[in-house]
């Protein structure tokens, strides 16, 4: 480590700090009293230090607000979607990677084409379809449309392809069925890939905005992302800046914690998701 390196770290710390400031500011504002914020947002050090300090915003959030409920919804939807995507993608990915059957190439091509269809291009027909079925304002309406993501299948397919053939062949010689091989041999091996896919899906589900916006009109089924959008659209009349910011902090907490714990996987997930889909 030479002097150049330390200079580099210092030089990079400045933009890194600037990068952190908006988030820091949100956290700091959430700990300041609303009546102070109504007058000025820069009490101490441009408002970056929460003085005067209060935790009332969080208390109020948990006493009156819908935020905890929305939070729970987000958790249900995100976990549901993650499990669903994992189930659908691992099975299909394995079949496409390791098994022989007619029309395999056709199915692969159809999946590839599906990669090109963005959510935004199908949300209207999906909306009318779910309306006809009377499915809106439910958890399955929030979960189902994103189950069939070809990206997950491709991710798993690539992983399964890389597993050496001989493991499977040994099991075949022992007369083990394909489903058992999948369940007892392949799935345990696929854990890292599944982790990657799970994180990718969870982040997507937690942060999705457009679909919940059109599908959920009842507050019971708002996700935290949607709920947050609904309270920021009328700042002037809302309960105060501090409380809105506190909701923002609560909404971000799980994904930030998830990220800090599983940083390595998140980065892998982003790299894999990024370069393929």
């Amino acid at each position: 480590m030479n002097r150049g390196y330390y200079w580099l770290v210092i030089a990079l710390s400045i933009p890194a700090f600037i990068w952190l400031v908006p988030t820091l500011w949100m956290v700091s504002l959430s700990f300041q009293p609303n009546d102070v914020l109504a007058r000025t947002t820069s009490s101490t050090a441009f408002g970056l230090v929460p003085l005067p300090f209060t935790a009332d915003n969080y208390a109020a959030l948990f006493t009156f607000g819908q935020t905890p409920w929305w939070f729970l919804n987000s958790l249900i939807v995100s976990l549901g979607m993650t499990l669903g995507v994992l189930a659908v993608s691992t099975t299909a990915g394995y079949a496409l990677a390791r098994l022989d059957f007619p029309f395999k190439r056709t199915i692969l091509v159809i999946c590839l084409v599906g990669l090109m269809v963005p959510e935004q291009a199908v949300f209207i027909p999906l909306y009318t379809m779910f309306a006809d079925l009377g499915w809106h304002n439910s958890y399955h309406a929030l979960i189902l449309p994103r189950m069939a993501v070809p990206i997950g299948v491709f991710l798993m397919l690539q992983f399964f392809r890389a597993i050496p053939q001989d493991i499977e062949e040994a099991a075949r010689l022992d007369g083990v069925g394909w489903l058992r091989i999948f369940w007892y041999i392949m799935l345990p091996l696929a854990r890292p890939a599944m982790m990657t896919l799970a994180i990718l899906t969870f982040l997507y589900a937690w942060n999705d905005y457009l679909w919940p916006l059109v599908s959920a009109q009842q507050r019971e089924y708002f996700t935290i992302t949607l709920g947050l959008a609904s309270i920021q659209s009328n700042f002037a009349q809302s309960e105060g800046l501090g409380r809105v910011m506190a909701s923002g902090v609560i909404a971000s907490l799980p994904v930030v914690i998830l990220f800090l714990i599983f940083q390595r996987y998140v980065v892998q997930a982003m790299t894999a998701g990024g370069s393929k889909g």
């Binding site: 909306y127 009318t128 309306a131 009377g134 809106h136 059109v214 009109q217 009842q218 659209s233």
Partner: peptide, 16 residues
Amino acid sequence: WGNYYDQVKAAFAGGT
């Protein structure tokens, strides 16, 4: 306010 009428319409169209 922002999406009120959009949401009411969407609710009507969704049958709820």
